[in-house]
């Protein structure tokens, strides 16, 4: 049998192709373009090959930033996932207070990121900030502009405050989808609170939790605005996470070639980790359906 050849179909995909080209492919290609060329000004470019990639891979600066980044993402995941699940487990299941909790918890998610940064920047200040002043008054030596530990604690607490709600809301949605009959069966089976969580709630939440982990990982891995507003990457470079470092390099020092190589590797790391997550998630889905 002959296949029907219908070339007209290409025209139907064309708008999408154009849109994707302008929104993703062309910008990405300009970055690729910078990453393999060198310039000495006047818009004159020379072929540099993989020189920038080699330079970046040998440079401790990117590895340090990557280390800090992984530490940051790891810590906030370790705090936000259990805390979000804990909050979700303790939220009212229905009625007025359920809606009330949902609205209150959504509030941090609705605040623009630079505002969140500003809020915590001021909140933590020793001279006028409620938190900073109080801690100082209590005799605790807290100053996020000079003490690395204080700076880290500040940006972590800020991220936890900003994003735990998202995990809690997702976990709550997962919990709500568990039919009452399971809990009743568990009661008859005299399962303890822990066993109910371990054998009913946690398996039923697994799907949304994986999504929560993936979202929180990607978002935290790309975080820029909030820590930039609060600490600007300092003191020194202790809170210079990947994207802050990247911006410093690209716009601060105008090292376009290395910065482009940096961003492509940054992009590949995110892609790789997301792919791993995706594979794990789909396997989980297949197993439990």
């Amino acid at each position: 049998m002959d296949k029907t050849v219908n070339q007209k179909a290409w025209f139907l995909v064309l708008p999408v192709l154009i849109l994707v080209a302008f929104s993703a492919v062309i910008p990405l290609m300009t970055v690729v373009n910078y990453s393999v060329q060198d310039t000495f000004g006047d818009n004159v470019f020379f072929w540099a090959g993989l020189e920038w990639f080699e330079q970046m891979l040998r440079d401790d600066r990117m590895w340090d930033a990557l280390g800090r980044q992984l530490l940051f993402s790891g810590i906030i995941l370790l705090i936000q996932i259990p805390l979000g699940v804990f909050v979700a487990l303790n939220m009212p299941k229905r009625g007025f207070w359920a809606s009330f909790c949902l609205v209150v918890m959504s509030l941090p998610l609705l605040i623009p990121w630079n505002v969140v940064g500003t809020i915590w920047q001021i909140f933590g200040r020793v001279d006028i900030g409620l938190l900073g002043y109080t801690l100082d008054a209590l005799g605790i030596d807290y100053n996020y502009t000079s003490d690395p530990l204080a700076a880290w604690i500040t940006i972590i607490v800020m991220d936890v405050w900003h994003w735990t709600s998202l995990v809690a809301l997702l976990a709550y949605a997962g919990l709500q989808s568990i039919p009452d009959a399971y809990y009743q069966a568990a009661k008859i089976d005299q399962a303890s609170r822990w066993k109910v969580f371990r054998y009913i709630e946690l398996p039923k939440m697994m799907g949304v939790l994986m999504i929560a982990i993936l979202l929180r990982f990607m978002d935290s891995f790309m975080i820029y605005t909030e820590p930039f507003v609060v600490t600007g990457g300092g003191p020194g470079s202790v809170t210079t996470l990947l994207s802050i470092d990247l911006v410093k390099m690209a716009l601060g020092q105008f090292d376009l070639g290395p910065a482009a190589a940096f961003s492509i590797m940054y992009f590949l790391v995110i892609l790789l980790i997301s792919w791993v997550f995706y594979t794990v998630m789909t396997n989980l889905d297949k197993r439990d359906g």
């Binding site: 039919p179 009959a181 009743q184 069966a185 089976d189 005299q190 054998y199 398996p203 039923k204 439990d288």
Partner: peptide, 26 residues
Amino acid sequence: LAMVFQSYALYPHMSVGENMGFSLKT
């Protein structure tokens, strides 16, 4: 007492044997 539910309420993440033995396990 033991109860059988309309929706069965079998724990979906356990095998048939684990479901049946769950109350004894707890």
